[in-house]
Design a protein around this nucleic acid. Structure first.
Lengths: 129, 129
DNA sequence: CGGCATCCGGGGTGATACTG
DNA sequence: CAGTATCACCCCGGATGCCG
């Protein structure tokens, strides 16, 4: 038993049809920067734009903006702008986003634990070639 | 409490440094087709190339091959070829892959349940604009 | 500080054809 | 059936410049 009844109920015959809404959401939350942003916000503490940029190391302004707008449109991230100068904007997870994050953290934990071994294996395999 | 101690222990100061092995593994398992392949194999039943192509609807031959080789190199997917004609090749999850899949299924369950609402919201938001 | 608009270059992607 | 090879294209994503 590795596939849940929920999954079976929703996708009895093909995991994901190419036009299924799940595909869209899947692409959003598993996007390169989407996962990092959600995870950074998973601590529960609102983060500012500049903080997010540091947390998701390597992200460009454009991609961070794009990612945040995408997640906001999906109702996963909340954006609160205080109209002061200099501007102060904070991002946090919505209730929905927090529930999603709960399911992402165990996955990230696993990856964090096993990534070194996996990359190590790959390196050896590459060296053997 | 939304971020685990494991995650904190491994990434005390930045979720993911840009050169961290986790980034590589993360990109692999959250790649567009990687998730679908892992999930398709998560049932535990070995699948043939052509079955995988049908399950991951929309995947091209090239990307399926690329994805499978990547996951195989990561030690997540096992490839067994029976040298008969016509060729018979079966893919399944390794023990490591199965453990990863266990952590992906809850995430996919959540997405499967909430994707319609999310896409629906996005549609409404777009219409409102 | 927190964005958005524009340009543009490279590589990821898909279609097609071919093979063991 | 299960792939590899080749190629053309498109779009992701970075860099830059400007604005509230």
């Amino acid at each position: 038993m590795t596939v849940s009844n929920t999954l079976r109920r929703h996708f009895p015959d093909g995991i994901f049809a190419s036009d299924c809404p799940s595909r869209v959401v899947l692409d959003h939350v598993t996007s390169k920067w989407g996962t990092l942003v959600i995870l950074a916000l998973a601590e529960g503490k609102p983060l500012r734009w500049s903080e997010l940029r540091r947390r998701a190391e390597g992200v460009s302004e454009k991609m961070l903006a794009q990612t945040l707008r995408m997640l906001e449109a999906d109702g996963l991230v909340d954006r609160v702008a205080r109209p002061v100068v200099p501007p102060h904007v904070e991002y946090s997870l919505t209730a929905r986003g927090a529930r999603l994050a709960e399911r992402m953290v165990p996955l990230m934990d696993w990856i964090a634990e096993h990534a070194p071994a996996i990359v190590g294996d790959a390196g050896e395999a590459a060296a053997r070639r």
